[in-house]
Design a protein around this nucleic acid. Structure first.
Lengths: 118, 118
DNA sequence: GTACTTGCAAATACTTTGCAGGTAT
DNA sequence: ATACCTGCAAAGTATTTGCAAGTAC
């Protein structure tokens, strides 16, 4: 059952994941989704993102080495991924010099998507 | 009453703000704190941060022009601010090229603080 | 049988809303 | 009086937990 979740794509809320899983297995409860996500997050296979829109989002931590961050539309809630090497380098430098032992990072750019900004 | 909140410092949860306000005015309810915070966020005087630890954090959007991001300890929940020009430059570059019209951004570095990392 | 998993329902945590009473104009 | 602000209690949403039944070894 845990495997079923790993198939899902970028940036879904727990509710969205639940809905998708139920297409195949209607009896699965939301609690099982949360339990599976918790396990996957602990294993480092899934990242949990707080995008400030009520519910947390989850996405597979790409085994492919893909690493990206997110653009969030404050109007319609749309989320798009982006990646940038310069940004990653800057973050790595900061992480190396930080007083904390850094394990990971999140970057969220907030604004209006092309549809909402016109 | 709104002014009372603006005096508070960096990165408090609504609960913490409520507790502090109550020291001075014990009858203030948590709802009023949320209402005031909502107003302040809309006015751009306060930033709301989702640090992934259950509750949102709020901090004054410095009139001093101060701009910083946060280190979060995944163990004890401690939050520390940091600032880095190279990082800001990288974000500005990305924002300029993004398909969204970007209004703001958040960066969170996650790890273990000196006390927890040993 | 023992141990682990799972769905349901209840509980919890955080935030928002309705409403009645108070204050200001 | 009218319009606005506020505290309390209730509602709403997101997430977690307890527990009994189901499955695997």
């Amino acid at each position: 059952m845990i495997d079923a979740l790993a198939d899902e794509r970028c940036c879904l809320t727990a509710q969205e994941i639940h809905d998708r899983v139920r297409l195949e297995r209607p009896r699965v409860g939301i609690a099982s989704v949360y339990r599976a996500l918790e396990t996957l997050v602990e294993l480092g296979l899934v990242h949990r993102l707080e995008l400030g829109s009520g519910g947390a989002h989850y996405e597979p931590a790409a085994a492919t080495g893909d690493h990206h961050h997110h653009l969030v539309c404050g109007d319609c809630g749309r989320v798009e991924p982006f990646a940038d090497d310069r940004l990653e380098n800057a973050i790595d430098k900061v992480s190396a010099n930080a007083s904390f032992r850094i394990h990971g990072h999140d970057v969220v750019l907030r604004g209006a998507c092309d549809a909402c900004a016109g």
